[in-house]
């Protein structure tokens, strides 16, 4: 195969593009700018850690089923872990979001990083809602019967019927986790590719002059 032919292959072009945008030293850097030493980023990482626990406990719940999580002590425990990790997830994400909003984190060509964060927040709300809808208790009955008219009024009822348990379960355990994990991955890669937004006073300082500290 000639080198021109190799250059034209989509795998070659994609590899070169990815390596150009995200070289290994950017993907897994040794140091970060000193302004990354902030509690606001701790809450970003806490959100990621909580997401890991949410997915892990969700997998256990999926394996054992509603009779188990409603009817046994261990089931109650894992069910509660799933709920409280979601609480930590949303809590940390909101604080991270407020902090990034105050920093105007979309500056310097970081609009896509900000927007993936916004979409993640909205997708998380939808995921939490479908989770409440499939608890299979009186709480989920109340929530879904209250929500159905609102959802139907938007015209989304045909694909998002909150009274359809099977459909809500599939949204909660297949579609929404897929969306969340994909966009979270995109968000992290964008943070690595574009870097963390500098403080307003450092906005015009060249990158080479910014103090860096080990990760």
């Amino acid at each position: 195969m000639s080198s021109e032919e190799i250059d034209r292959q989509w795998t070659t072009r994609l590899r070169r593009k990815v390596a150009g945008k995200l070289p290994p030293e950017k993907l897994l850097p040794d140091t970060q700018p000193s302004y990354v030493a902030s509690w606001i980023y701790v809450f970003g990482v806490a959100t990621l850690a909580a997401l890991g626990v949410v997915i892990g406990t969700g997998c256990i719940l999926a394996l054992r089923g509603p009779q188990w999580w409603h009817g046994s002590s261990y089931g109650h425990f894992v069910n509660s872990l799933h709920l409280w990790s979601v609480e930590v997830f949303m809590f940390s994400m909101v604080i991270h979001l407020w902090g990034k909003f105050a920093m105007a984190a979309w500056r310097g060509g970081r609009m896509l990083t900000w927007m993936t964060g916004v979409v993640l927040f909205l997708a998380s709300v939808a995921t939490c809602f479908t989770g409440y809808a499939i608890q299979s208790n009186f709480d989920s009955q109340w929530i879904t019967t209250q929500a159905k008219d609102g959802i139907n009024a938007t015209g989304a009822g045909a694909y998002f019927n909150v009274l359809n348990f099977g459909q809500m379960l599939m949204w909660h355990i297949v579609l929404m986790p897929l969306v969340l994990v994909l966009i979270t991955g995109m968000h992290i890669l964008l943070v690595r590719a574009k870097g963390v937004v500098p403080p307003f006073e450092d906005d015009l300082v060249p990158a080479a002059k910014i103090t860096r500290v080990s990760e």
Binding site: A37, W39, F91, V94, G99
Partner: peptide, 17 residues
């Protein structure tokens, strides 16, 4: 609690800074 934590995150010194 979120508002209190956010304000604390802004003003509490970060360890090692």
């Amino acid at each position: 609690l979120m508002i209190v934590t956010f304000v604390a995150a802004l003003f509490l010194p970060f360890p090692g800074r």
